[in-house]
């Protein structure tokens, strides 16, 4: 939206910077997983999610052109409230459902113990 105020050359440059950053941020996680470069699961997950989050920010800034000045800040505001909602939905569901799994699924030995009750 703010792109119309820029001249064409700087618009092209903005899109190309975003594109090159996106390519780099996409290639690295794919390369890490496909080559099996790291055997440490946590390191691999950190790379995937860290670079994925950065790439989402790159897209928001360079492609969607979200700025605090656009639409008197309403665009950035609605984006932020959405992010808050998403954080609550995602972390809440995962937290609650994992606890359900823990508490509702009897472990194998518990079943055996109940079976062998006198």
């Amino acid at each position: 939206m703010s792109a119309e105020h820029h001249d064409a050359a700087s618009s092209y440059r903005t899109y190309m910077v975003g594109f090159v950053l996106s390519v780099i941020l996409t290639v690295i996680p794919f390369a890490v997983v496909m080559s099996g470069a790291t055997s440490n699961l946590n390191v691999a997950l950190a790379i995937i999610f860290g670079l994925g989050a950065i790439q989402i920010l790159v897209h928001i800034y360079y492609f969607l052109h979200v700025t605090f000045s656009a639409e008197d800040g309403w665009q950035a505001m609605s984006l932020m409230i959405t992010v808050v909602f998403l954080a609550i939905i995602l972390s809440g569901s995962i937290w609650v459902m994992l606890h359900l799994h823990e508490n509702m699924m009897p472990a194998h030995e518990q079943i055996e113990r109940v079976k062998n009750l006198p």
Binding site: F30, F49, L64
Partner: peptide, 25 residues
């Protein structure tokens, strides 16, 4: 334009979370 870029943004989540993480776990 907004819609199309937004779908690409969602796809970042899909390939990171579903495909790459799924193959690792």
């Amino acid at each position: 334009s907004l819609f199309w870029h937004f779908l690409d943004l969602i796809w970042i989540g899909v390939f990171s979370f579903v495909y790459l993480t799924g193959v690792l776990l």
